[in-house]
């Protein structure tokens, strides 16, 4: 994609009266020198992997090698006491499911990264289920998510080791929020607002994984970041804008990432990783 700013994507969409997803799809066709059918089919494969990872994550029999992860999604799915309605429950459950499968070295779609792979599928597929939205539209929304993520990767980073978790779960939440607004028929400006709102509120999030595993706090954080995206979607669709435009939020994220200590960027040298319990877990797992 040749776009380097979300602003330009929005302008183009408004000017031509099209969805952002359509721009991303057309850019993809041109860049890959292929057909629309091929591009859509490729994304459909991703959608199928996402669906499969949710299904797998809701089965009983998976535990990560460390034993720290497995069964969270199912626990919440089966609980009778979930406040906030079915959509909220679905979003969190699906994000946990994908993230559990990732922790168990199963197959996921890395979007924006594997560590943050639960958020986009959870938000889009829960909305699709609730509002009976066909796959074709989900696929289009995935292109919107992809386009937004690609701009972050060009302007800043998607690596926890470079930007902390704000660059992973933060961006995942922002991509999911923007794509969900597109899916629900919001305007291109609202896509930008939802993206900016979600990312702004996760600025500064550090990457401090216990024992260097993509498990604690990563798995549950996917659940949080997915419900967080839902809040951004509701704000944006109800007409609340972001004072700071999306591109400037991305720049701010990079600046915060640069200022963040290396010990909090996927090195497990501070934060949760070096708590008493975090250290103990690392020590116990040393030989695994």
């Amino acid at each position: 994609m040749h776009y380097n700013r979300i602003e330009n994507l929005i302008d183009k969409a408004v000017q031509d009266d099209i969805k952002i997803s359509q721009i991303v799809i057309e850019e993809e066709i041109e860049e890959r020198e292929t057909t629309r059918t091929a591009v859509i089919e490729k994304m459909n494969e991703n959608l199928n992997v996402m669906k499969e990872s949710i299904k797998e994550g809701l089965k009983k029999d998976h535990t990560s090698a460390s034993g720290l992860t497995g069964g969270e999604a199912l626990t919440m799915q089966n609980s009778d006491n979930i406040l906030g309605g079915n959509l909220y429950r679905d979003v969190v459950v699906k994000a946990l499911a994908v993230s559990e499968i990732n922790a168990c070295m199963g197959k996921v779609v890395a979007g924006p990264t594997a560590g943050a792979s639960g958020i986009v599928p959870a938000v889009l597929l829960s909305l699709a289920e609730k509002y009976d939205i066909e796959d074709e539209k989900i696929i289009k929304a995935l292109f919107t998510a992809g386009g937004l993520g690609e701009i972050v990767s060009k302007k800043a980073t998607l690596a926890g080791a470079e930007g902390g978790c704000q660059a992973e779960c933060g961006v995942g939440s922002a991509m999911a929020a923007g794509a969900a607004v597109d899916l629900m028929g919001g305007t291109p400006e609202q896509v930008g607002d939802a993206f900016a709102l979600a990312l702004k509120n996760l600025l500064g999030l550090v990457c401090d994984p216990v024992a260097g595993l993509v498990e604690v706090p990563c798995v549950k954080r996917n659940g949080f970041a997915a419900s967080h995206a839902l809040t951004a979607v509701n704000m944006a669709l109800s007409g609340i804008g972001s004072v700071i435009p999306p591109d400037e939020v991305i720049e701010a994220m990079m600046e915060v990432g640069d200022l963040m200590s290396v010990s909090l960027k996927e090195t497990s040298e501070a934060g949760l990783a070096t708590t008493e319990t975090g250290r103990k877990i690392a020590e116990d797992l040393k030989d695994i």
Partner: peptide
């Protein structure tokens, strides 16, 4: 991709 990390595994 096979998890758990896009940078540390897939990359």
């Amino acid at each position: 991709m096979i998890g758990p990390s896009s940078s540390h595994t897939a990359g």
